[in-house]
Amino acid sequence: MATSTNLFEQIALDLQVHGVSIQSLDLNEPALLTLTERLAHLSQQDFYKAGIGRQEEHMKNSQIRRDKIHWLDTNNAQEALFLSYMQDLKIYLNRRLFLGLFSYECHFAHYEPGAFYKKHLDAFKGETNRILSTVLYLNPDWQSSDGGELALYDPNDHSKVLQIVTPNFGTLVTFLSDEFPHEVLPAKKARYSIAGWFRVNTSVGGHIDPPQ
């Protein structure tokens, strides 16, 4: 497996050329292993039903998505280690690609058997500050027959599947938020991941967005 610097460089190259990157973290990477430990200590009461949209537009629609989530923050040492790792990636991508990334937010996503997330974009051009989306999978011994794949669609033809990603442990997917429609296909057993977004700063008139 590549070191984090080599991994970050490969992600940068992929994004520059293709707009999407699918890589595997070193399975001994502490930031990855600590997420497994953290997940083992979370109960189902620590997860809540995910919604759609932000703030006053936030709503829940089980016809679109049926995952449950738990947001990460720096108050927990295990979560903080992963957030620090992604901070390093942010710094690298800013230096390498001049993206102006300002902050990163993410949550655990739990898909129960049969749960899904219909095709969607994480951002719409000119309407949000999400620039890059990331998904890190936390499913040891996942089999192709277990389902739960991530389907990435062609930016120029939203009916054409560009890539199918099996949610294997340690797989990290990074893509342009406003370019790639994607969906989570139903799985036959519990499926876990970290879904996250790098944002730019769109603060105006003292209103901080994204919040720090």
Results as ranks from 00 to 15, higher is better:
A50G: 15
K49H: 14
R199Q: 11
Q63K: 14
Y92S: 06
T174V: 15
I69R: 10
Q23C: 10
A115F: 08
G196R: 11
L150C: 00
H110T: 06
G100W: 06
F98P: 03
H41G: 13
S103C: 05
N139E: 01
V165Y: 01
Q163I: 06
P210D: 02
V165F: 03
Q163M: 12
D26Y: 05
A2N: 13
D122W: 04
L42K: 10
D122H: 05
E112C: 08
D178F: 10
L89H: 03
Y85C: 04
Y111L: 03
D88M: 07
H58Y: 15
D157F: 01
L185E: 10
S159R: 10
Q10R: 15
G206N: 07
A12K: 03
F116H: 07
S21R: 04
L81T: 12
S145G: 00
N139T: 00
L89I: 03
I208A: 11
E183S: 04
V173T: 11
M1T: 13
R96S: 15
L185F: 07
Y117I: 03
I52Q: 09
D88Q: 15
P140S: 02
I164L: 13
L136E: 01
T174I: 15
L15C: 09
L176P: 06
E105Q: 04
H158Q: 08
A190N: 13
E127C: 03
R191F: 12
E149Q: 08
N129K: 02
V173R: 02
H70D: 10
R54N: 06
L162V: 01
D209W: 10
H120I: 01
N156P: 01
A2V: 11
A195W: 12
V173G: 03
E127H: 06
V17D: 15
S144D: 12
G205M: 12
W71T: 06
D141K: 09
L81I: 11
S62A: 15
L93I: 09
K119N: 00
A190K: 14
P30D: 00
A109F: 08
D122N: 06
R66Y: 08
F8S: 02
L97R: 00
S159Q: 14
N168A: 08
L33P: 08
G53Q: 07
